[in-house]
Write a protein that binds this DNA or RNA. Sequence first.
DNA 1: GTGGTCTAGACCACC
DNA 2: GTGGTCTAGACCACG
Lengths: 116, 116, 116, 116
Amino acid sequence: MINLDYKDRMPIYEQIVREIERFVALGVYEENMKMPSIRQMAIELGINPNTVKKAYTILENKGVISTISTKGTFISNNTKSVVNDKINNGIIEIKQKIEELEKLGISRKDIIDRLK
Amino acid sequence: MINLDYKDRMPIYEQIVREIERFVALGVYEENMKMPSIRQMAIELGINPNTVKKAYTILENKGVISTISTKGTFISNNTKSVVNDKINNGIIEIKQKIEELEKLGISRKDIIDRLK
Amino acid sequence: MINLDYKDRMPIYEQIVREIERFVALGVYEENMKMPSIRQMAIELGINPNTVKKAYTILENKGVISTISTKGTFISNNTKSVVNDKINNGIIEIKQKIEELEKLGISRKDIIDRLK
Amino acid sequence: MINLDYKDRMPIYEQIVREIERFVALGVYEENMKMPSIRQMAIELGINPNTVKKAYTILENKGVISTISTKGTFISNNTKSVVNDKINNGIIEIKQKIEELEKLGISRKDIIDRLK
DNA sequence: GTGGTCTAGACCACC
DNA sequence: GTGGTCTAGACCACG
């Protein structure tokens, strides 16, 4: 399910973080769902368990997942705010892109027209 | 003129490439203009000549500049197509971003409204 | 395996590029094969790792090899088209040579007779 | 008349040597013909007189031209052997090219067929 | 002075 | 251990 791009400058662990965040935002991973174990996901992705471990640690710090020792790892409950954050960040990124293009001599109106 | 950010994940040489491409697109660097020499730019930016050389090599491969040994480095004549390419690529990237956001449950129309 | 000629006007890194392209064309290096690491090849050839790196970068730009950071460098899958390209280019170069010789007053037929 | 390629790895002075040799071989420059002065050719080609000087020195060593002080520079009389040398060298170069292509898995017969 | 090449060696993130 | 980046500095040919 998770797709890795080894040519990307983004490290593998960060790609995993982003993918899982995306799945959570999309509702593919639902609240309180049990995540695959570190070993299991490492095998599925064909990578080193340390890499998965690093991704899980970051996700836990972000509050996206929470680990209950001896029980496993689960998706947290605060999903809705995660979605809104992602949308807002996405809008901001697009606005930055538009500003870059405006510097190249194309008007904001022309850009938006070409997006419809 | 060129601003470097050492904390950025983007390597120095690529930052230089982007900046020069931007200057060409903006018309700051005009066609056939002589570029600063490798050593000169290295001194101005406070970096190693090899790093500038790497940026220049990439720009030459891209057709943005043209290097004549013992003469110097010059902006190529293809500038206009370069600008158009950058604009088109920018539009495509924005469209991809929009598609990602749509998957999060916000409509294209709502996204575009928030861009104006 | 790779032979370097320091007296040649062709730089070391380009000699490496040509040799590897030749090995790929000859099938000595098969598709998806792992290449020697940058450091390893540098030691074998008695040269600096940066020089090997430069050769590898050029080969990657040409699509001959594919580099995956922290994993290694591998021969790409496009080998057959690479071989055909090399043959076609070689034929074209020879035709140009023949045209040059024709201008010196020798007929195409005579030239070809002397090639058999 | 003489065409210079600043991107070529071959130095300018050597390009001049080759061009003049070619013109001699082709009969464009006839025996005993007076060559343009160093200054004059330097101006025509838009290059440094030292570069022309270097080319003339090499040509004189090769016996292609001869300088008579206070008179000027003239094409030598041994042109025919020059032509034959160039043809023979050309044939040898083509044979080497063919051998390279044979290593790529195409037969000599197939190569020659594609030259006709 | 210019670009072209190469060396030696360092530090980094990732795995 | 692997590739990625960068520095410092050297030597060269050319013009």
